[in-house]
């Protein structure tokens, strides 16, 4: 059964259908080139690239292209996102919820705080919902019950409030600053 997804050869079932190759199943594994903002080239199978909703619609609009420039995505988070999507394709072919959960958990556990934070905008831009869910939850777990200063440095964000604004906010939510974990 698995041959229908893995192999480009037409089976008896598909010969009865229209001669146009089905883009999902029967096309030979086409490679798509993704180019990061720091000019690194990533060759990925079409099925992986189609996990990126943004890339998918790019192809729907201009089907003749084979290189997709991603002018605001750097190589490191992109390579990690590709790694994640490759695994998800395998789970799509052979659904195994327990294994998928385990993989997703390990995927985020072994990443640094910075890796997670850098991947979120990329997953958001490329519209990879599954990955975004996993990343958001992982980040939420890491910042839960931490101090404001910890959260700032976690995300690499500068405090852009004036002293007055900050004082007003602290008063408004005074209860929330009690009992946080040690940084």
């Amino acid at each position: 059964m698995s041959s229908s997804t893995d192999s480009p050869t037409l089976t008896t079932e598909t010969t009865q259908l229209s001669p146009q190759p089905d883009t999902e199943t029967a096309k030979p594994t086409k490679k798509i080139t993704l180019k990061s903002s720091d000019n690194q080239i990533f060759e990925v199978e079409e099925s992986v690239a189609m996990e990126f909703a943004t890339v998918k619609s790019f192809f729907e609009d201009s089907p003749s292209t084979d290189t997709v420039p991603l002018p605001n995505v750097t190589a490191k988070p992109l390579s990690q996102v590709i790694e994640f999507c490759k695994e998800q394709i395998k789970f799509k072919a052979n659904p195994d919820e327990a294994q998928k959960k385990k993989y997703n958990a390990e995927f985020v556990t072994e990443k640094s705080d910075k890796d997670l934070v850098d991947m979120i905008p990329v997953a958001n831009y490329l519209e990879i919902k599954d990955l975004l869910d996993v990343l958001n939850q992982a980040v939420a777990d890491r910042i839960e019950n931490k101090s404001v200063e910890y959260v700032r440095s976690f995300f690499g964000i500068d405090n852009d409030f004036t002293a007055e604004e900050e004082a007003a906010l602290r008063r408004e939510h005074a209860w929330a600053y009690e009992g946080v974990d040690e940084d």
Binding site: S147, V148, V151, I157, F161, R170, H173, Y177
Partner: peptide, 9 residues
């Protein structure tokens, strides 16, 4: 956490 995070940025 959400209330506290108002102060981040």
């Amino acid at each position: 956490d959400a209330c506290k995070s108002s102060l981040v940025s």
